[in-house]
Amino acid sequence: MTRFLLRRLLWFAITMFVVMSVSFVLMRSVKGGPFDQDRNVEPAIEQNLKKKYHLDWPMWKQFLHYVGPLNLDERGLFGEGEKSGEKAFGGVLSGDFGPSFRYRDYTVNDIIGQSLPISALLGTVAMMWALALGISTGIASALRRGSGLDLAMRLAATAGIALPNFVIAGFLIVCFVFLIPLFPVAGWGSIRTMILPGFCLGLVFAAYISRLTRTGMLEALSQEHIRTAHAKGLSPGTVVMRHALKGGLLPVVSYLGPATAGILTGSLVIERIFFIPGTGSHFVNSAINRDYTLAMGVTILYTVLVYSLNLVVDLIYTLLDPRIALEDE
């Protein structure tokens, strides 16, 4: 168990190092630097800007400063003058993503701190809704296998997977905002504004979960112990909920990791359509505006998030299904 965790963490550290160093080098060697979209600035001001963002340092030093955990500028541990030691730690490893290149007065941490709760809430709504809809339709489909209901649900699931969420979102906006005015068109704040984006974001995953649940339940229902449970005279409801569901939901559990990653990705589009000020829309804007530090900060944050969630899911999986041993990894 410990070996498994250590090995996973080691691999993760290596991967992150590669991703970070490659993108850092690419980012810093871009011609003109991040300020070239602005009006021509005075050489002196440019010098100051470069100094402020440490662009005058050699690349390796900038990278070390960015990664951390030691702060390398004059306020750091090895700094000189009265400010020395004021801020000994910095960089990504101590949770500091540096200043934003585009929003001058904010650090990347400020922007993420403001927007992440919004995205997290939206993601949670979407996930809850995807799980509720997916599992219930999946079970219904498996219990009525081969019926018209089963066929209709499978077709709906395939359609949900095939259609991109922005097309579905457009469709639903036309239907439920304009034709039948139930929801506001965009914005964020009240529960009413969360329903439509959460629905659009969760739909694809509901479709996948429905398919996985159906397959898992069919497999679980054909097991010997289910027959025993029936033979014991348990009610069909108890058999399904108590005995079949635990085994039948295993594929869904292993899908939760990729689903979280997918919801984070989907939120890029959904937040843009519904004008939700979450991390996703900041990420897209930063990518378009070439605000590299912000883009990289969000990338690193989401990667760490998804990776740790995957790890947790793997651990839960072994708890639920003792037949799978972690040491096999």
Partner: peptide, 13 residues
């Protein structure tokens, strides 16, 4: 286990 889409968007920019 990495959400590559973020990395890719970053790389494309």
């Amino acid at each position: 286990s990495i959400p590559f889409i973020f990395v890719v968007i970053f790389l494309i920019t």
